[in-house]
Design a protein around this nucleic acid. Structure first.
Lengths: 350, 350
DNA sequence: TTGAAAGCGCTAACAT
DNA sequence: ATGTTAGCGCTTTCAA
């Protein structure tokens, strides 16, 4: 293993000079810095992080704490952050919580004891007190979900607007009985989305409570069962809005299973734009989320933040807008609309 | 921060005694150990990992190096490993290579300098010499892809059998012009799969080279363009087999775009079982891979391996079989089969 | 069975 | 602008 001493010996300078040169200390001449970094490169020098950490410097590890990496949504986030941090010579330490606050606490503990440089977290609904306390000890930022207790540094999406647009689109198409299947409102995202749904319903008209189905946002099976319940209603909805990626998947699954076709039998607006949504039936009209951009912005900001230890406490909030992606799964409601483009292409009559 | 010195001072013993007691050294009396651990507990002592690492003990970090976490395939692996290692108090450090050997090298360097306990890697096609060298310095295991240079500890899937089954299925249905779109054969997986394809073609009959399209396995666009090329052939294939997840996605994309419907216009067998494959057209017949099981097995084995520093050099190979999942995208080839179930359900005539 | 002491590689206060 | 030196907390010889 090559150490600064080796470099120092080669260059006939003291170890501290090398150390300072590598740390880009202003007291070292440009020429020396130049030479040092050349030799370091040549000898394949890699700083010993353990030794650094012992001197109080934190590791080059950034913890990423999120519910489930299999969710394409979070995978995109992990990818974007990984790229972004790689550029800044940081490593991602991945922790999954499964939306379980105790697992979350355990993860944070591990990260804290590993002396991470910072933590990027998508918090669970009710983080443990200890989780909050530990989080305060190192730089951190919240992603997507926001908890006041954890802090005011947050990158998220305008969830209310997202679902508002989705629902409004259906309202404009003449739909009145619109079902909503989304996450419970104990999560900030869940409640914001639900709010968007209500806000879009025409003239203060409160929705039939039976049309609103709330469950754990990561539970596709809930979406599936909720869809079944909605379809079994005496007055079934003419359209459904999804309030999470997994819910969308459950909904599509169940509609396919029941042989329901959008937009003929029902209009559907999904949440997120996973692979396959494009080719579900006539193409799923869905809420597109700028996840990649969001994560990149968050990563860049966070690295900057970590490097300037000073202003880290200042509140910061970034809200990105969602955009409705119009495809084939929604259509005007009413008897006049019964002949779909699709049906006519097939030459069929109804 | 409580150190062993503090404990030593409280107990009027030397720091080394405390250190040994905590390490359960046989030379320390049971009574002393008892006292030490009591006081340590009481004072809230937490071992300083950095200091430990400096003494050569590795961290509780396990590096996971793979091409792209957004690939559902790898996300499943990361998830399974994360769960598995969490139980053993290890943290996952995630590195993406994008199938670029220099990025791979850089990641390995980072991991090595972070003193990881071990590395689980899905190697690129031609890992750098230095990558191989560094890898040898810490415990490691290969996943899915196997490179002789890296070692003989490998967990993978029987790729040849997987594509053999997929192709055989089509052959049995009477197809003779079967296209194959897969990864290049410089990757071990690519070549094994291609072999399975050739093996399944009837009686040594070598395929029309134009029917075989090989590209970067992670490149969905290649799959898309390759599909276009196959469809533009004077004698177009009657069926297509996909040789990677991303290729499958490209193929489905292009078929949808061209308005080609399986199995009426063409039979298709996919690779992997991503979300959405189930609802593509009539449901995609595809090769199901036991990714979760594979990753879990790998994780358990690896932790065990790390904990017993001794026998780590012994070769170990685990091959899991793939299974064909029959859905609606394949059908008998020939004029007699022209009336599909689907068409008759619709009451249409052809 | 325990102590004393020497570092691991790095950073930072204190010289020069 | 650079060199000297003293540790960080732990493990690990070597002594007792």
């Amino acid at each position: 293993m090559v150490t600064i001493k080796d470099i120092a010996a080669r260059l006939q300078v003291s170890p501290s000079t090398v150390g300072r040169a590598l740390a880009d200390d202003p007291r070292i001449s440009a020429a020396t810095k130049q030479k040092v970094s050349e030799v370091a490169e040549e000898m394949g020098y890699v700083a010993n992080l353990a030794a650094r950490m012992m001197r109080g410097v934190s590791s080059n590890l950034i913890g990423l704490v999120l519910p489930d990496i299999r969710n394409g949504f979070y995978a995109t986030i992990a990818h974007a952050l990984s790229k972004c941090l790689q550029g800044a010579r940081y490593q991602l330490a991945l922790s999954e919580t499964d939306d379980d606050r105790m697992v979350e606490l355990q993860s944070i503990r591990e990260l804290a004891s590993a002396n991470v440089a910072g933590i990027i977290i998508v918090p669970t609904a009710k983080p443990h007190r200890e989780t909050v306390r530990l989080l305060k000890l190192s730089p951190h930022v919240q992603l997507l979900r926001k908890h006041a207790a954890i802090g005011d540094q947050w990158f998220g999406i305008d969830d209310t607007q997202a679902i508002f647009e989705a629902t409004s689109h259906l309202v404009q198409l003449g739909h009145r009985r619109i079902g909503y299947i989304g996450g419970t409102d104990d999560l900030p995202t869940g409640s914001a989305r639900l709010k968007g749904y209500h806000k879009a319903l025409p003239g203060g008209e409160s929705a039939d409570p039976a049309l609103v189905q709330l469950g754990a946002p990561g539970d596709a099976d809930f979406g599936l069962n909720a869809t079944r319940r909605l379809l079994a209603l005496p007055k079934r909805p003419t359209a459904i809005v999804a309030g999470s990626v997994q819910m969308t998947q459950g909904i599509l699954e169940e509609l396919t299973a029941q042989g329901m076709r959008a937009p003929d039998d029902l209009s559907v607006v999904g949440f997120g734009d996973e692979l396959g949504f494009r080719w579900w039936g006539p193409g799923l009209t869905t809420v597109g989320l700028p996840v990649h951009e969001l994560a990149t912005a968050c990563g860049l900001w966070f690295v900057h933040q970590i490097r300037q230890r000073s202003a880290s406490a200042a509140p910061y909030t970034s809200i990105s807008p969602a955009t409705l992606i119009l495809r084939g799964s929604t259509r005007k409601h009413g008897p006049a609309a019964k002949t779909s483009v699709r049906a006519s292409v097939r030459g069929a009559t109804v």
